[in-house]
Simulated scan of single mutants.
Amino acid sequence: MSAINYKQIDAELAHIATVLKAPRIRSTYHDTAEQARDGGWTYEEYLAAVLSVEASARQASGAQARIKRAGFPHIKTIEDFDFMVQPAIDRAKIARLETSAWIAQGCNVIFLGPPGTGKTHLAIGLGVIAARHGHRVLFDTAAGWVQQLTHAHSTGSLPKLLAKLGRYDLIIVDEVGYIPIEAEAANLFFQLVSTRYEKASLIMTSNLPFSRWGECFGDATIAAAMIDRIVHHAEIFTHKGNSFRITGHEDILPSIAAEREHQIN
């Protein structure tokens, strides 16, 4: 029986790993082979060990790419959210959403409440988890989405944009209600919601209760139709309390309230 030419085998495996664009296989197969020989592994066990390193690395790399493409303004995690400060949010319900199973079912998640109470934090946190689970995610504010839709409409490319967005498993719409949306733009936004109904998921955050969405969208009928589709298959969370960003500066709250009253009047 001829001696095993390990140098030739190493060269062949290195070449194969390069062709397959699998650098982790190239860097780990030799050491793993030593472990396999010492441990008496089967061929199948060795193959699984080598491939799992590459698969895990690719999965992690893909997740990072999806997170980057999502357009998050910053990265927030569920682990970093202080549920003690926001007891109105049921931690167990958030934990169930962390499986991302709801996305496969085309369901939605809505966070309502005052500014600065963690709505965007949780929305991003769930979006990051979804990206890590292999889902395509896109984030923007309501104003940003309206701008995209309006531009597409004006250039005759709205159907193309809606088709493109339909290929994303999860779209996050942040800050609904902060800036009024004109009737024509509201109709475009309704089309975005309607095309995703029972097909793909939304996460939305708003400082307004649903009863006031008609004020934001300038059309009570469109707002009602939109809400009807959004909440049909949705988990809704209502945040309470003052802004986290104001904590420790409660002395300025009276002046903020007075300013809001002045703006209303």
Rank of each mutant, 00 (worst) to 15 (best):
E175G: 10
Q35M: 07
N207P: 09
Q86H: 11
S52E: 12
L202Y: 11
F111L: 11
A22I: 14
I222G: 00
L165C: 13
A186C: 04
M204Q: 04
R37T: 08
T247Q: 11
A22H: 01
L138R: 15
R229W: 01
I110W: 04
R58M: 05
L161C: 02
L165V: 08
H151C: 00
A101Q: 14
D10K: 00
A142M: 11
A101W: 06
A104L: 15
L97E: 03
E198K: 14
G134T: 15
R96G: 10
T150C: 02
Q105Y: 01
D169M: 08
Q86E: 05
S2H: 13
L149N: 07
A101D: 14
N265V: 13
T18C: 12
R96T: 14
I110S: 05
Y43Q: 02
Y168C: 07
L208M: 10
L158W: 00
H249T: 02
V176W: 12
M1P: 04
S243E: 12
A95E: 15
G177P: 10
I75R: 14
T42Y: 03
M1K: 09
I103L: 07
A143H: 06
T221W: 01
A123D: 09
A65V: 10
D140R: 08
T120Q: 12
I78N: 02
F217M: 09
T99N: 00
Y178N: 07
L170C: 06
K68N: 09
L208S: 06
H135L: 04
A57V: 11
E12F: 07
P254R: 00
R91F: 08
I25E: 02
F111G: 13
I78V: 12
V137E: 01
C216V: 03
I179L: 14
Q147G: 04
E198Y: 11
E259D: 04
H121T: 07
R66E: 01
M84A: 12
R167S: 01
W102Q: 08
A224Q: 07
H30N: 05
I246H: 07
T77N: 05
G125F: 05
N242E: 10
S2R: 14
I179N: 08
R37F: 08
V193P: 05
E54I: 05
P73V: 10
L112W: 10
R167N: 12
L47S: 03
H74T: 14
R26W: 02
Y29A: 15
H232E: 02
P114M: 05
I9E: 12
F81R: 00
H262M: 13
R260N: 04
G116I: 02
P180Q: 04
G40H: 02
I16T: 06
A88F: 03
F72G: 05
M204C: 15
